[in-house]
Design a protein around this nucleic acid. Structure first.
Lengths: 320, 320
DNA sequence: TTGTACGCGTTATCAG
DNA sequence: CTGATAACGCGTACAA
């Protein structure tokens, strides 16, 4: 590995001179500067970030963390994070659950954005601090150095269900995600509360515990069919389960939306293609915003409570 | 920031004793060991990764690199990489173009898997070496310490086109990706060679230069329509462009597959949903394999030429 | 069993 | 304008 020493030796100068050139200081002669830059380019030299950070204590690296590989919208979030950080001259490294424990440290990075429910609240609390703020995108922990940036699931779900009620639907079904996810809790709460408000009873035989995967939506409908009773409208906690539900319905010659209406949540690329009525979440923007909030906290801003960004309903063909 | 020195001071021992305890060496008395661990826990001490790596060089971290956020299959590849590395007790960190320059170094990681055409051949060559082998998933550079693991685009495209020829198609169109991507070059070569082999002329007015995005497939068809001539079958270099093409066709009341057939390449989740005839690429497996090859190179194996994994045609409804 | 001295790659300080 | 040297936090010989 070629280091600053090697460059200095080749150029016949001292390491300090090379360092000065590399850091754009003005106290180096033009000829020397150019010769050194030339050599660096030729040798493909890049400063060792370890040595650099060790000395300066300054870091400009942010860790993003996730561990589920079948949620494609993560890439959109990462894209938003990436763009904001790039504009502000921060490096982004993305870790999965295992490596997170090693790199989510203030000695390595200056903050983190996390979207990984495998990381425990305790871990996140213990690792966060004044010089290591954390943005949480999958939960709310209200401490001084952690801030949540999450979807306002509840409000939009209330809107969605209210609109369905207004259309005259009475028998509702719900295909939920795992109970321990905040998203599902909020989405179901909005669903349930709105029905209650409209004095529409919800029969829990129409609740299915899914896992956000297509297959579980498929299973849900198969089970509903086996029990010989289908709701009029099936509200799904995400798109993938809605797709699974639709697949099962089609296989059983139950028409969408003539016989049953279906809604999703996410508005991924497939949703538009398939014509699914769903909730559109500004993923890119949420990542961008999360990064912005993080940098502000690094700059000393204090957590002023969770930030909830709003989502929007996209009405398409799967609702009568 | 509390360091090893502080722990040593509090415990009233030397730093090396603390270091020995932390690294599980046997040369420390039981009482001392326990007292030190106790203090570390109390103080919330974690070794500074920078200092640690500077000395030892991380020996079990792999860098994965990408920089395009709208190619969802990247997550599948990453999933495969992640699983193999996890089983072999390596950490994975994912970098984008900018941070790559900092972290793709033997002083930080022990190898890399790259899928980012923003990284130049020269950069990859210069950074690779005996202590830093690189697996390339987007190009072929044949050096001792870089190995390519790529899709065998050519063979499967030949198969696809031959099958289309056998079905009786004569007027072919091609919507390609960027010329500088290996994928597109190979896919087009397979397309062109097979037509030639069958003495079927290819009219270059039916070639459209796209960019792998849905929109460019849409534009391609709009332009074909404006020129008042459509091919019988439209071979697209990836699924997304095929979707765009289909959207434009539908908007113009041109039926797929009755009026025109369409094929894609990738077999993403949408393809199955939409019923697109396309080429299925084992993404997860390719990531898994890339990781396996990398660890073998780290173990001293030499590059024995590019590894091409084969893809498979999935015939669905968009071909007559 | 514990302590000392040194090196890792870099930057900052200060002397020349 | 340039160079020598001391940090930074940690691991590891080797000495005590």
């Amino acid at each position: 590995m070629i280091g600053i020493k090697d460059i200095a030796k080749i150029a016949g100068v001292s390491v300090s001179t090379v360092s000065n050139v590399l850091n754009g200081r003005k106290n180096v002669g033009k000829a020397t500067r150019e010769r050194i830059l030339q050599i660096c380019a030729e040798q493909g030299y890049h400063p060792n970030i370890m040595g650099k950070n060790l000395k300066t204590g300054r870091k400009n690296t942010i860790v993003f963390n996730f561990s589920e590989f079948d949620r494609y919208f993560y890439l959109k979030i990462i894209n938003g994070v990436h763009d904001y950080l790039k504009d502000n001259d921060y490096d982004l490294i993305i870790c999965t659950d295992k490596s997170s424990k090693n790199f989510m440290r203030s000695s390595f990075a200056s903050g983190a954005i996390t979207l990984d429910r495998k990381l425990s609240d305790d871990f996140l609390k213990s690792v966060s601090g004044k010089n290591f703020p954390i943005i949480l995108m999958d939960r709310v922990i209200d401490t001084e150095y952690t801030k949540s940036v999450i979807v306002d699931n509840y409000t939009v779900m209330c809107e969605l269900v209210q609109a369905l009620v207004n259309k005259g639907f009475k028998r509702f079904g719900f295909i939920g995600g795992p109970d321990y996810t905040l998203d599902n809790k909020e989405r179901f709460a909005g669903f349930e509360d709105t029905l209650k408000k409209n004095n529409i009873p919800f029969d829990y035989k129409y609740y299915f515990h899914g896992n956000y995967r297509e297959e579980s939506g498929y299973q849900a409908v198969k089970i509903f069919i086996l029990s010989h009773s289908l709701p009029e409208v099936l509200v799904c906690a995400n798109d993938d389960m809605a797709f699974g539900a639709i697949r099962a319905l089609e296989e059983n010659n139950i028409r969408v939306p003539q016989d049953i209406s279906v809604t999703g949540f996410d508005d991924g690329d497939l949703a538009e293609m398939v014509g699914l009525t769903t909730v559109s979440i500004p993923r890119y923007e949420s990542g961008y915003l999360a990064a912005k909030e993080l940098l502000e906290m690094i700059g000393g801003a204090v957590n002023a409570g969770p930030f909830k960004f709003s989502a929007k309903i996209n009405w398409r063909g799967t609702v009568r």
